[in-house]
């Protein structure tokens, strides 16, 4: 346990077109607009909890984020946790963003999570994940990894390989 207990609150993104980004996060995550902070940033989230702040870039034609696998210093991605913890939830999200035409970067089993990575309108890399059963990672020295891509499983062609060892998992 850390000597200081923390909770991830929110990420702040500077948008080239804030109206476009607000609509994107409303559509993709179902986020609500939850007012503005003292700096005028638009606050967004779910159930009244702020998880994202968006601010308008002064130069909308400025440089955009560099995306993996290109080299850069800075944010690689920011992750939001979906609920409930079920692969069917991740499938529902995958179908949802495909229907919206969102550019998917990759989908992967990380042992501790199953994750979908996608790009927002400014090419920020965003992750949406579900937690896998905790017992899957509990005894591992390094509970984070990249096991297999999940493209076929998300498309409903098969189940993710890990589920055969966890028959109770949904």
């Amino acid at each position: 346990m850390s000597d200081t207990l923390l909770r991830t609150t929110r990420v702040t993104l500077r948008a080239s077109d804030i109206a476009r980004s607000v609509k994107f996060y409303e559509d993709v995550f179902g986020f609500d607009q939850l007012g503005k902070d003292e700096a005028g940033r638009t606050l967004m989230g779910a159930d009244g909890i702020v998880m994202l702040a968006l601010e308008q870039a002064k130069d909308p034609n400025g440089s955009r984020p560099v995306v993996e696998p290109q080299p850069f210093i800075g944010m690689e991605h920011f992750a939001f946790e979906l609920e409930p913890d079920s692969f069917e939830v991740l499938r529902a999200f995958w179908r949802h963003i495909n229907a919206l035409g969102v550019e998917i970067h990759h989908c992967v089993d990380h042992i501790i999570t199953n994750s979908i990575y996608f790009l927002d309108p400014d090419r920020n890399l965003i992750e949406a994940y579900i937690n896998c059963p905790k017992e899957r990672a509990r005894d591992l020295e390094h509970p984070y990894g990249t096991v297999e891509d999940l493209d076929d499983a998300l498309a409903g062609k098969c189940q993710p390989a890990w589920m055969k060892d966890y028959p109770h998992a949904k």
Binding site: T4, L6, R7, F72, I73, M75
Partner: peptide
């Protein structure tokens, strides 16, 4: 960062502008 990565000015660049964490005890 991979070789060839360039620094960005996070005060003005489009994209990441900060992350916020809550400290759940005042002593922290």
């Amino acid at each position: 960062a991979k070789d060839g990565a360039e620094e960005r000015d996070f005060r003005s660049a489009i994209g990441f502008a900060g992350v916020t964490y809550e400290i759940t005890d005042a002593d922290g």
